[in-house]
C-alpha cells in the first residue's frame, strides 16, 4: 500500500516546470548579454541548482537516501568551476566527470544495499500518513523507516485468517495500529528502545494478530476499534 500524502511540498508540477522554463528563457537571454551574479555564478547555475536541490530534497522526504548521489554529483559538476576558483585552483576541472559519476553509482548501489527493505508492503514517510492493509492478504504488512506519524487500518476484517503479522522496522516516529476489537494482539519486541502500548483488557475469543517491532526507537500504540 502506498501513501500519497507528500507532506512538505505541494507546489503543482505544472507550476514548477512552468517557472523553470521561464527562468531558462531568462537565463538564455541574460547569458547572451554576458550577465552574471558575480563570482562566476550565472542564472544557469541558479536554475540548475534549484532543480537538483529539489530532486535531492524529494528523495530525502521519501527516505530514499541512496538516490541523492547522482543529483549531488551533477550539482558538483555544475558548480565545479566556482568551487575551484573559491579554493584558489587554476584548473576548474578538479575531478573528472566520469570519476564523479562512477563514484555516485557505487555510492547509490552501496547505500541502497545497506538500506534495502524486504517485502512489498513497506512505507517510509515523514509527516502524518495513513496506511490500509487488507486483512485478507496472507502476506502480512510491514511499516518501515518511519519518522512521522502513521495510522494503520485493516480492511476486510471478516476474512482475516488469524495468522497476520504487522512488522514495524526502523521506526523513529509514531505508529498507531487501529486493530478490530474482535482480535487479540500478541507483541514481539527485539532491539527496540521504543515503547509498545497495548490497552489492557481481557483476552477475547477471537483471532490474534502479531505485532513485531525491531530496531525502533519510536512508539507503537494499539487502539481497539
Amino acid at each position: 500500500m502506498s501513501n500519497k500524502n507528500n507532506g512538505f511540498f505541494t507546489v503543482s508540477r505544472s507550476v514548477f516546470w512552468g517557472l523553470v522554463l521561464i527562468l531558462a528563457a531568462a537565463a538564455l537571454i541574460l547569458d547572451g548579454v554576458g550577465f552574471s551574479f558575480g563570482i562566476g555564478i550565472t542564472l544557469w547555475h541558479v536554475i540548475g541548482g534549484v532543480i537538483l536541490l529539489s530532486w535531492i530534497v524529494s528523495e530525502c522526504v521519501k527516505l530514499r537516501f541512496h538516490a541523492i548521489f547522482f543529483p549531488l554529483a551533477f550539482l558538483f559538476m555544475l558548480f565545479e568551476g566556482v568551487i575551484a576558483s573559491w579554493l584558489g585552483r587554476e584548473d576548474p576541472n578538479m575531478i573528472s566527470n566520469w570519476t564523479l559519476l562512477l563514484a555516485a553509482l557505487l555510492l547509490t548501489i552501496g547505500v541502497g544495499a545497506l538500506t534495502k527493505r524486504s517485502g512489498g508492503r513497506e512505507n517510509a514517510r515523514l509527516g502524518n500518513s495513513t496506511l490500509y492493509f487488507d486483512a485478507n492478504d496472507p502476506g502480512g504488512c510491514v511499516v518501515s523507516d518511519n519518522v512521522g506519524n502513521i495510522h494503520v487500518y485493516f480492511i476486510n476484517k471478516e476474512h482475516y485468517n488469524g495468522l497476520g503479522v504487522v512488522s514495524v522496522r526502523n521506526s523513529v516516529g509514531k505508529v498507531t495500529l487501529h486493530v478490530p476489537s474482535e482480535w487479540n494482539v500478541v507483541t514481539e519486541c527485539k532491539d527496540t528502545l521504543g515503547s509498545v502500548n497495548v490497552p489492557e483488557r481481557e483476552q477475547v475469543a477471537g483471532k490474534s494478530i502479531t505485532v513485531s517491532v525491531r530496531d525502533s526507537v519510536g512508539s507503537v500504540t494499539v487502539e481497539f476499534v
Binding site: 500500500m1 502506498s2 501513501n3 500519497k4 495513513t130 496506511l131 490500509y132 487500518y153 480492511i155
Partner: peptide, 10 residues
C-alpha cells in the same frame, strides 16, 4: 479519505 487511488469510508 483517498489513499492509493481508493476511497476508504470510516
Amino acid at each position: 479519505e483517498v489513499m492509493a487511488s481508493k476511497t476508504y469510508v470510516h
